[in-house]
């Protein structure tokens, strides 16, 4: 495969999956965001930080439209970013991934990455709607979230390489090692420092639709890159020219 084609299909599959992610979010997550921001506004009025005036609502509408309109665009940008990571990992691991063809190999990898760099970190640091989250702790929360993703993502690579050196049932030791490390990390890392003041049913429903949105990305990027790879790569072993 030509290098330019490799880059193009990786970026295209990321952008398409990001477009799907943004569109799904627009359809199913936005109502919960509106609801949460409504509570946030009521809290501002109650605390006296803002007044319930026409000027407030005019300003609110202007930036809220900007925020909503960015959902799909941000989906494409995030899709390009995560799709690039996915493309790199797929290119480096394709020859050793299980599966009969490129689509099944890419889907297998997308499931692994969905679990390790999204679902497991999400269980410790789940998504929160607006009105949950203190601006003073945003840097700490970002560090914690990224750290968990990095620990999970890097350790799955290490334990995968370890499993290649083991034979037969001993390969499961690597899986157990990864699971053990994740349990230790889960327990050892500090909790999100922010108190949840929003209604829990809103928070839980928001988290559910958030998972659906991100999952739509990982499902789509695996299928799309696998399809493109199958279409454009005619070599049995990966070759770049």
């Amino acid at each position: 495969m030509k290098t330019i084609v490799f880059i193009a299909i990786v970026l295209a599959s990321g952008a398409i999956a990001g477009l799907v992610h943004g569109t799904v979010n627009f359809a199913i997550v936005e109502p919960y965001l509106d609801q949460a921001i409504g509570i946030e506004n009521q809290n501002l009025f109650a605390s006296g930080e803002e007044e319930d005036t026409l000027e407030f609502w005019a300003e609110y509408e202007s930036y809220r439209i900007w925020q909503k309109s960015g959902q799909v665009l941000a989906g494409v940008i995030l899709g390009l970013a995560m799709g690039s990571l996915f493309g790199i990992v797929f290119a480096l691991s394709r020859n050793s991934l299980p599966g009969k063809n490129d689509i099944s190999k890419a889907v297998f990898l997308s499931v692994i990455m969905w679990v390790t760099i999204y679902l497991i970190p999400f269980l410790k640091y789940p998504a929160n709607p607006p009105t949950v989250g203190d601006g003073e702790t945003v840097v700490l929360r970002a560090i914690l979230y990224l750290s968990f993703i990095a620990i999970s993502g890097l350790s799955v690579v290490v334990f995968y390489k370890l499993s290649k050196k083991l034979n037969g049932n001993k390969k499961y030791l690597a899986l157990a090692g990864y699971a053990g490390l994740m349990v230790i990390t889960f327990v050892a890392m500090p909790d999100n420092p922010d108190e949840i003041t929003a209604p829990m049913n809103l928070v839980n429903e928001f988290r559910f639709v958030s998972v659906l949105g991100v999952s739509s990305f990982w499902a789509c990027v695996g299928i799309t890159l696998g399809f493109f790879w199958k279409k454009f790569d005619k070599t049995p072993q990966m070759e770049y020219s």
């Binding site: 959902q71 940008i77 995030l78 999204y118 640091y125 607006p130």
Partner: peptide
């Protein structure tokens, strides 16, 4: 930040 605000929340990134 405002342009990506809704995706930031929806994708699980810390915000605010």
């Amino acid at each position: 930040h405002e342009l990506t605000h809704d995706m930031r929340h929806a994708a699980g990134f810390p915000c605010h």
